[in-house]
Amino acid sequence: MGNPRFYDFNVHTVPDGKDTVKDVMAFAKHLGFSGFAITNHSNVEEPYLEGSMQDGIDTYKAVEIVVSNPSKLNGLVGKYRKNVDVVAVHGGNEEINRAAVETPAVDILAHPQTSKNGGINHVLAKSASHNNVAIEFNLDSIIKGRGGKRVHTLSFFSKNLELARKYNVSTVLTSNAYNCFDLRAPEEMIALSKLFGMSREEAITSLSDIPESIITKNRNSGIVQGGVEIVNEEIISSDGE
């Protein structure tokens, strides 16, 4: 087995964050990442930037959709879906979280935790699993939080992880970085994820396999409408004979 390739799927760059894509690329490459997604918020100007592959590190066009009203989510997802590789939704509100996990075109529900709970319950976890929406664990709240806030984040994360395991929901580990110094090397992210109970294997999957599968899914999708999935490709191909 070769070394896994690591990806950080929540990074903000200029104009949303502080550093340019080039700066972040150099920094992330040095830390050992194979790529990252530029998930600027949809409410800033020019939220998504051209993805590129340069100097051995990939950047993916992505967006983090911010909505105040869940009814507007579907429209915005439709607007961005065709232009970007990764669609994330800015969670943190129970109604938005629910709308996000019920939309199959969404890839990641970012920071679902609210001030009171982890933002995920059994119902949402089931939908997330069914619609293949990944739940994010944004490690910046562990890195930067101190005291009570971090205590809560850690317990919310371990609860979310328990639900994700039970309902087989994909999980992603991200830095939610706004500048270069918010990034952490993959091994450090794995060590941080152990704090809330993730095993090393789960952490590697969340940093490597799941981001890769999101990209492959969106780049090679035979565009199947929402609710329609190809169960057995052989039946389709043999139909033509």
Binding site: L139, I143, K144, F181, R184, E187, E188, A191, L192, K194
Partner: peptide, 8 residues
């Protein structure tokens, strides 16, 4: 490692 990662 986790401790060192929280140094920001």
């Amino acid at each position: 490692r986790a401790v060192l990662a929280t140094v920001s």
